[in-house]
């Protein structure tokens, strides 16, 4: 048997002493691996938003990929770019990953033109997640505005799958107008099967609208919140955070039981490009889920 000597520059060795291990975070977040996916289903939610079901092609990788509710991934379309998208499917779903995407720019534009069977790449998961285990035995208040319902779908699935562990769960959802409401086909299931109190409101109703109109904070008048036994998860446009969190704070819901998912522009997802920095905190690495106490201590976060 022939042995082949490894070809290496012995001279180079002393110069390449391994640097210390800094990246302990890669235990919970994968940043360098791209999973190749196929779009297996496209659901048109509104003219602007589509729900994409992605299936990781390699069966082994499909098994490896796992995430927690609230985390996001980078969706990559080679030649167009990479965008951060929050995951809106169940973390137990090993078959496919659902991403709700609004047409807003270069990458999402091309995605909206894509057909079933198109191949894309995903990198991730990134960021922090909602502490679902901590919430066991408590009431949960989910508050979403507009596209903010997409990241809340993952905790909603989690709650549905572990419904017996949680007390009363309510979902407050507000949008601009009735046509821009997302996932309307699932409302009946959430209410009747999962026993989630769903309250919806729109800023401006149209002719066929029979529900409530007004700002999302109007919904608080219809319900009583037990501040000692409730966790809140808030996601929506920045202006909504301010009003909702101020209200929750005024009824003395502790700040460390209010969780918000912040939105920032992200390019790398590794805390390197600095775009998503709030103060000295990287939203992509230390966020996007923060408790309200941390957010209040971050300058210009909301």
């Amino acid at each position: 048997m022939k042995y082949k000597l490894p070809k290496e520059d012995i001279n180079l060795k002393p110069f390449m002493s391994k640097p210390p291990r800094y990246n302990w975070k890669d235990v919970i977040m994968r940043t360098d691996k791209t999973y190749k996916c196929e779009i297996i289903n496209i659901i048109e939610l509104t003219p602007m938003e589509k729900l994409f079901h992605l299936k990781i092609l390699d069966p082994v990788e499909r098994d490896i990929f796992s995430f927690r509710p609230g985390q996001f991934l980078m969706l990559e379309v080679p030649g167009f770019g990479e965008v951060p998208i929050s995951i809106s499917s169940s973390s137990n779903n090993k078959e496919y990953i659902a991403l709700c995407i609004r047409k807003a720019g270069r990458v999402t534009d091309i995605l909206h033109k894509a057909k079933k069977g198109a191949k894309v790449g995903i990198r991730g998961p990134f960021g922090t997640s909602f502490p679902m285990e901590e919430m066991i035995g408590h009431n949960i208040l989910l508050i979403a505005g507009g596209l903010g319902l997409a990241p809340l779908r993952a905790p909603l699935y989690w709650i549905s799958e572990h419904r017996d562990e949680y007390e009363d769960v309510s979902l407050l959802y507000g949008t601009k107008d009735p046509p821009s409401m997302l996932f309307t086909y699932e409302y009946a299931e959430w209410e009747k099967v999962n026993h989630i109190d769903l309250l919806t409101i729109v800023d401006q109703g149209d002719d066929g609208w029979t529900g409530r109109t007004g700002l999302i904070t109007e919904l608080f008048k219809e319900m009583t919140i037990d501040p000692d036994n409730t966790f809140a998860i808030v996601c929506g446009p920045p202006i909504m955070f301010k009003f909702v969190c101020n209200y929750l704070d005024s009824i003395r819901l502790p700040m460390n039981r209010m969780f918000v998912s912040l939105e920032r522009r992200m390019h790398c997802g590794m805390g390197k490009c600095c775009r998503c920095m709030v103060g000295s905190t990287f939203t992509c690495v230390d966020g996007p889920v923060f408790d309200y106490w941390s957010v209040m201590n971050l300058k210009e976060a909301i």
Binding site: P19, Y22, N23, K25, M29, M270, G271, K272, F282, V285
Partner: peptide, 8 residues
């Protein structure tokens, strides 16, 4: 900077 968090 490039070493911390995730190494580049």
């Amino acid at each position: 900077f490039f070493r911390k968090n995730f190494e580049d």
